[in-house]
Write a protein that binds this DNA or RNA. Structure first.
Lengths: 159, 159
DNA sequence: GTCATTACTTCAGAAAATGAAGTATTCAAT
DNA sequence: ATTGAATACTTCATTTTCTGAAGTAATGAC
């Protein structure tokens, strides 16, 4: 009589949302571990990759700090490091000269694309989904991204 | 002419796997941030929550270290802390008395369930998916979890 | 029985994060 | 037009977390 059984039977009575989130967590952690394992020759700190992933579009450093639930000083240090690596660049927010926008450089976009691309390669084998299922999943994920991008958290740069 | 445009148009030419992974990343990071924000009165370190999530079933500490891509000493320290909090317990692996199995306690299972449950609550509003889409997504995620649990990474406790 | 290997712990040192104080800018109130 | 509270990020001393080598205990091939 083992505890924390992971079988389908333990899903009985769980809402679709919970089943969905359990899957998202496990899938993310799994892919993350494989991506990090692959990157051993040129590893970025976990939070550096996290930051690159969040910089789909330029963000204020304060907003990034809030997104990452860390102190502004943490973002400063991490941005320094990524700037040194040539992966991000700072530019002044024209609407508020106190603020800096952080954006990916060409190299940063490549790094970002590489991470996502590698994760995508892993996706099929890790997930066990077939072609049709992946297409359905991708369609749902596109809607999800659209929703998240629309709602934001917090506001991105003032247009 | 902005860079890193996140619109659907920028998805053109991307494989379903890449679109899937972009969504998984964004969804996970978003939910993670909201869950952490909620937990401010009794916050667990990020990696502590990560560990609780990985302990769906008892795991060897060495395996956990590999899953989390950290040193065994890191898992020792983190396990100490979670044990102090009453969230996990260590027990000897009967098949190898050098090894320890780490498992969730009643409180740990509650914490785990609470995290997933709260994330599930957020899921609907964050994702923007409707009832039918969530059910489809949950079905796909159940298959994903089954696949991941079957393949493991690395081996779990010897049965 | 021996000894190389494995599993986790300990601990000194390194790395990363925090939070208070600092500098520069903004903008509402006067 | 001026002022000062608030905001945005940086600096830096301190705290927290992680690493990796060395240690102890157990395993298993020979």
């Amino acid at each position: 009589m083992s505890c924390c059984d992971f079988s389908l039977r333990s899903d009985e009575g769980l809402s679709p949302e919970i089943r969905a989130m359990k899957g998202v967590y496990l899938l993310y952690l799994k892919i993350e571990e494989l991506v990090d394992a692959e990157d051993l020759e040129d590893p970025l700190p976990q939070n550096a990759r996290h930051m690159l992933l969040l910089l789909e579009s330029p963000k204020r450093m304060g907003d990034l700090a809030r997104d990452m639930l860390s102190q502004p000083s943490t973002v400063t240090a991490l941005a320094d490091k990524l700037e040194e690596l040539g992966l991000v660049a700072r530019r002044r927010d024209p609407s508020d000269r106190r603020a800096w926008l952080l954006e990916l450089t060409e190299a940063g976009r490549a790094e970002h694309a590489e991470t996502v691309s590698y994760a995508a390669e892993l996706f099929r084998s890790v997930s066990g989904l077939d072609d049709d299922e992946i297409k359905v999943f991708a369609t749902l994920m596109t809607k999800v991204r659209t929703t998240i991008e629309k709602s934001g958290l917090p506001k991105g740069p003032k247009a």
